[in-house]
Design a protein around this nucleic acid. Structure first.
Lengths: 213, 213, 213, 213
DNA sequence: CATGAATGAGGATTCATTCAT
DNA sequence: CATGAATGAATCCTCATTCAT
């Protein structure tokens, strides 16, 4: 019964192959776009046989799904840490501003780590089918809800002015998404991410108004 | 000379067929997404023969291009009217706020008129090929530039506070895009467009800060 | 509107193509057996493109089904003519024997006309899937039932001896099937079909017993 | 000398594995039909690795062949015992009838023991290739020849009436095959095998004629 | 000019077979 | 000897495109 060791080795080998395919798939998806990539492109990049793909995935959609699911899970879990602690809401306008800032800061490493997958998330995922489209919308909705929750609380405490928090939170999400996309596509090569966040946060909290001193 | 009349009639008929195909194409693109729609889907919807498609278009990409180009031209031309008149810049903070507001308002009918095409513009166009992706980015860039131009001028005139106008203008565009998308996908069924614009505009100009009176 | 004539011509053309494919399919099925024939074999024989096959049939199974269904319908309808007229049952042992004989005779031209399809019916159809297997069994069952009906009536009238008519009718069907198969596979090249029927009928009615005169 | 024992044990183990594969193959063949079963189905049922199959068999056809050959050998050898002893032919009509009966009875246990393989024999084997088809036809032919031999002798002895013994023997085989098939597919669940044989034998020897007493 | 039947290249998918462990 | 991961040839199937009517 050489099975136990063998089994372990086999499992590892297979996992390695699968991972290799996932990484290759991401690269090809990025380069050609989901719809134009052929299975044969992926296996060519991974340097494995055509059949190996089908040992590990049912279809192109499934690879894509696996890639995205993994990233989304990570995104949600990492971002959620330390949030929504009801006993730990900010205590002043300035406090809120700092909180918001640190939320934005928190996203940076996640995006940096998942640059390629993020591009797929924003560019390709919504065009695959409605299921994907829905899932992505839900994620944005979650962020929006979170923002709304904070805004509502801040208004209640009179730390910020009255407003339609649904619309405002969506505006905030819109700002975030657009900057992330720009960054992903290399449009901010000359800017510090920190600066972008500071400016965006200032806009949200202060607008472009010049306070009279 | 009945041939002249005949010719005229033929031309009209042909134009009608082509238009029919364009409209059908839009509907199918919306429903199935660009990549999943087949030529056969389009001709089926248009209730014409397969060959008729190729008499009017070279390929699926060409139909899509024609659909989008038409819409973009309209968008740019209608929106541009009355803008960037250097001698007619706003004269105060409030004036700027009003100007911004009316810019947003100006977009509404254009979007309403091109609802379906707009969805294709946002969802499908960026995934077709880099040429399209670029073209779309350029349009956003144009809006951003326009906003930046105004912001720069406003800062110069000390109507608004100092800020990185590149980042702020992108933020504004981000807000706009996100709201438009939400509206296109029917997420704002219970809201007045006007309210959204007012809230968004307030955010841009005042942030969420409560001015001490 | 040249449509009416065109439509007619197109329909005919298509029917011709389909028929061509059906005939070619039969030939290839006969030669290679259902399971070993590839779509490409069929289209090669029919001298049409691969796509033409799929314009006319969904799959290999579907062609086969169509071939068989057509034959079975014909078989049943042609054979049934003039049968089961309750007011016209035979009136004596000899009469029964003659009736049986003519039933057998009736089958001959049907089989002769459908020689190839019959081979597919007996050899390949039962191995495709259970649905086919069932359908074929049902047909045999129908013939058996018909025989049983006559036998029961004959016993009632005391024209023949008492027996388990279920078993006997199955025996008769067994005889028929086996002779048909043998004939289809060319094993009776030196025998007159008529002789076979006479002998088989004699066996059924008289056994191999020598009546004492 | 432990190596001797070791060798013995290895051999046994190997034989066991092979047998396991054969049994599993039969089950899968029955369930899915020869043509639809994949090697992977067989090894899955046998719970061995894919490679183990190829260590024991060259191909799917070879397993099938082995399964069938084994059964056919048994069938022939068991059935042949005590037959064709030229000095021991029946001595009267009744004697013949009894002989025939016991020949049928003799087949029963063989069939019962090889139920699954018999189904493969009748259903799948003729569709694999011409070699198999031929082999099966030969077996039926052998049975037919045997019957013919007895019939010829019986006519010679005037125990039965004159007839075309080629055709009659085929009829007998046809009866046998059809009943066996029906039994194999469970269509005689409510009948005693003995009854079927008695009825079939009566039909062969007496037909359905009512002898006048 | 409109049509839709026919086409076949391109891509997806399966599965028998090999082979390193 | 057993294993199952890897392979790629073989086949299926789709769909853009052509073209005779």
């Amino acid at each position: 019964m050489p099975s136990k060791l063998r089994e372990q080795a086999d499992k590892e080998k297979r996992l390695k192959t699968k991972n290799n395919l996932l990484i290759s798939a991401i690269d090809v998806f990025i380069e050609k776009g989901y719809h134009k990539t052929k299975i044969s492109d992926i296996v060519a990049k991974a340097e494995v046989g055509q059949g190996t793909f089908y040992r590990n995935f049912k279809s192109k959609r499934e690879v894509f799904e696996e890639i995205l699911k993994k990233m989304i899970e990570e995104l949600i879990s990492e971002f959620s840490e330390g949030f929504l602690n009801i006993n730990d809401m900010p205590h002043s306008f300035e406090d809120y501003k700092k909180s918001s800032m640190s939320a934005f800061v928190k996203i940076i490493p996640i995006i940096k780590k998942n640059k390629k997958t993020m591009i797929l998330f924003f560019r390709d995922a919504p065009t695959i089918d409605n299921e994907f489209k829905q899932e992505i919308d839900d994620i944005f909705e979650q962020f929006s809800s979170l923002a709304k929750h904070y805004l509502d609380h801040a208004i209640e405490q009179k730390f910020i002015r009255e407003c339609n928090t649904g619309i405002v939170s969506n505006s905030i999400v819109g700002i975030g998404i657009y900057h992330i996309k720009n960054w992903l596509y290399g449009k901010y090569s000359d800017l510090e991410i920190k600066d972008i966040i500071v400016e965006a946060n200032n806009l949200i909290f202060l607008g472009i108004y010049t306070p009279s001193d």
